[in-house]
């Protein structure tokens, strides 16, 4: 409160009116500064959208809609299409979510229902610390530890198992490089797991105790309470968490760049190297010569921006709904 007493003593010889006016002025200045900063956040997002549009205009006007449907990516003949990176982005993210969601929900159930109370906080924190590890660490680990492990043990085994099964044998066709779509998916799954877990755990905590207790009271098992009461009650929130995880997976750059293999083609096999939007930009942007090449890469960025914006907006909307219900 020093500012007040200071202001009061210095204003002793001035008129009271002048002090009030000064207060009003500084308050207006401070208020405008905060308001401007808030508006700046909006301007940032608008600026991102506009600059990506402007940067990709050349490529979009040259290739038009076929940019989205062409697999070719040839810097020499300057023929660019986004299909392979879009395919890689969607496939790796989808597989990552399929793996991470059941495990994430499992951990959340474990933390809210099963875990002994003294262990709850440490384990919760440990899982959340996974979220703080920078993605480049996952990348370097994936490249030097995880990929060789997959290459020498898991992948040959899977290829051997599915060799005789039609359909699946082309999905898991060799040779086992170690790096590729599946490896990227697994790394992404590890990366989004903490986000999904911590949000699921948070929304599980919003379930009113009386609902769970009444279910237990009529003799439900823990699993039945989870399956029939907790999950239906928190469905919107879980979906929000999954979408948020999906947003992360779609835009994740460094971890994927290390292990995807950076090949601009679409292959049926999950063991084949591929590419994603973000990996393509990270790998090629600084080496891109020619306006059209750069512009095509920015156009890829624009596509990624639009996809993630939609996914994240849906996620936020869903989480907002469950927040409102918890608040009501």
């Amino acid at each position: 409160m020093s500012a007040v007493s200071e202001a009061v003593t210095t204003s002793a010889m001035r008129t009271r009116e002048a002090t009030v006016r000064r207060f009003a002025l500084t308050d207006t200045i401070f208020r405008s500064a905060t308001r401007l900063s808030a508006i700046l956040v909006l301007v940032l997002l608008g600026g991102v959208a506009i600059s990506l549009f402007a940067g990709s205009w050349q490529a979009l006007s040259k290739f038009g809609f076929s940019f989205l449907t062409t697999e070719a990516w040839n810097p020499v003949t300057e023929n660019f299409g986004a299909l392979a990176p879009i395919y890689g982005t969607l496939v790796t993210s989808a597989i990552a979510i399929l793996i991470a969601v059941p495990i994430g929900i499992g951990i959340a159930v474990f933390l809210t229902e099963l875990c002994p109370r003294p262990l709850r906080r440490p384990i919760g924190i440990a899982v959340e610390l996974l979220a703080g590890i920078p993605s480049i660490i996952y990348g370097i680990w994936g490249l030097f530890v995880f990929a060789p492990f997959l290459q020498t043990t898991i992948q040959p085994f899977i290829i051997w198992v599915f060799k005789g099964i039609p359909g699946l044998n082309s999905l898991f066709a060799g040779p086992p490089y170690g790096i590729g779509l599946l490896t990227s998916s697994l790394i992404l799954a590890i990366m989004v797991l903490p986000f999904i877990t911590s949000i699921t755990k948070d929304v599980f905590d919003t379930v009113p105790a009386v609902l769970k207790e009444s279910a237990y009271g009529i003799g439900c098992t823990t699993w039945e309470v989870t399956r029939r009461v907790v999950i239906p009650y928190t469905r919107v929130g879980i979906m929000g968490g999954v979408m948020l995880g999906l947003g992360r997976a779609l835009g994740e750059t460094m971890a994927v760049t290390f292990v995807i293999g950076n090949a601009h083609r679409i292959s049926a096999s999950l063991f084949a190297p591929g590419t994603t939007i973000s990996a393509t930009i990270a790998n090629e942007f600084t080496e891109a010569d020619g306006e059209l090449y750069t512009s095509s890469l920015v156009a890829l960025g624009l596509i990624l921006f639009i996809i993630t914006f939609i996914i994240l907006a849906i996620a936020r909307y869903m989480l907002l709904r469950i927040d409102r219900r918890a608040g009501a």
Binding site: V48, L250, L304, T308, F309
Partner: peptide, 18 residues
């Protein structure tokens, strides 16, 4: 909230253009 989880490589592209 959307900026919070937007892909950071997009921010890189933005600053490159800017």
């Amino acid at each position: 909230d959307i900026l919070l989880s937007a892909p950071s490589i997009i921010v890189g592209l933005f600053v490159y253009e800017l």
